[in-house]
Design a protein around this nucleic acid. Structure first.
Lengths: 209, 209
DNA sequence: GTCTATATACGGATAGAC
DNA sequence: GTCTATCCGTATATAGAC
């Protein structure tokens, strides 16, 4: 495992190809990207892709795995932190994901797409199954909150709602921007607003009767 | 324009191919479906697809157009009905779309995907631009409601939220079902619950401070 | 390691028999 | 209208020169 500098002055050819692949795969999906597109984007020849990664599919698997880890990895620290309240955890998650998605707006659709294309394959690769979700700190805090406030709705609803409010705008971004006439900057400004709004909304939803 | 029977005892070959195409395109997306897949699904030979539809792309355009109309068409009546309140309109829309999505759970991801792949192309085809959205009855009712309750948030947020809460669970269905262990029937039961819950949530969100 | 040239496979589309 | 056989472009992958 080679150590990498924080700022890559000159990335290796392998990393350049991987970055190019990330860009193209994420924008067009697996089936619609050609190895030629990746080669062009990277500035190298198409033969090099196979030299480093053996095949288009293997390269894709690497990219996808990194995306999934980006989604899942960082979350674990916050949801299992005994030092923060439920409300604070929601705020942290919302803020963190919106930041990430503003930088990488194409990731959600890409990931959802490819999971849909082959649900088995990708689910095996994540392998976070080890964690017992019921015993996460956030789960305990939710149960306490639900009991204290006599909340009867299935927690799966609230989970879906949080994720929906965060992710959906990015998935629907082209439609939204077209129908509303918003520029990319204006759209991102709205997303910034949502960091504050979503936790408030979630709270209101949970307590609604 | 031939009139079709409500229940097709024996659909024409053309319609069978179209239905097969709908199934395969919707499941796999444009790039990943092969005309051979459609042929197999339809029970006919691949040559027939070109006989009836000239090309894969023309067939796709037809399917996509029908999907988009399914999304947009029925909505206009309800959002422009002067006889129902804002709350009633939201209830009607939520209920209607969830019914539709339970029957066609793959449509949202498919449509979002293809819009993302080529935003220009599809937006031109919808052509609902004629409608002045500001003058829809629902828009007036929203402004009245917002004024009466001193709501300051950008209405685009609320629009995104309604759509997100309805559509996202279907887009994320494979992940959700995998992480929660829900069967398809249990998932659909949750969606049924959401017909009542979402309008309540929306109301709570709008009035939250 | 990186390139050019090429083998090989696959997919969309068509010709032509029935 | 429907089929079988086939053409032809394109995409992945590899061989081999440098």
């Amino acid at each position: 495992m080679k150590k990498k500098p924080e700022i890559e002055i000159s990335a290796s050819t392998e990393d350049k190809i991987k970055e190019a692949a990330r860009v193209v795969f994420t924008r067009k999906g697996y089936a619609a990207t050609r190895t030629r597109d990746i080669a062009e984007e990277s500035g190298f020849n198409l033969a090099l892709i196979n030299y480093y990664f053996r095949s288009k599919e293997k390269l894709f698997d690497i990219i996808m795995l990194e995306h999934l880890q980006l989604f899942i990895h960082s979350i674990m620290g916050t949801v299992n932190d005994p030092g923060t309240s439920l409300q604070e955890k929601i705020e942290a998650l919302v803020s963190h994901y919106i930041d990430m998605l503003v930088k990488n707006p194409n990731i959600p659709l890409f990931v959802l797409n490819e999971i849909n294309a082959d649900p088995q394959k990708l689910i095996e690769k994540i392998g976070v199954q080890g964690v017992n979700r019921k015993e996460l700190v956030i789960a305990k805090q939710w149960r306490a909150f639900a009991a204290a406030n006599k909340i009867a709705v299935n927690p799966v609803h609230m989970l879906m709602n949080v994720v929906a409010l965060i992710i959906f705008p990015f998935v629907g971004s082209p439609v939204i921007r077209n129908r509303t006439g918003l520029s990319m900057e204006q759209f991102n400004a709205l997303m910034e607003e949502r960091k504050k709004l979503i936790p408030v909304w979630i709270n209101a939803m949970m307590l609604s009767k």
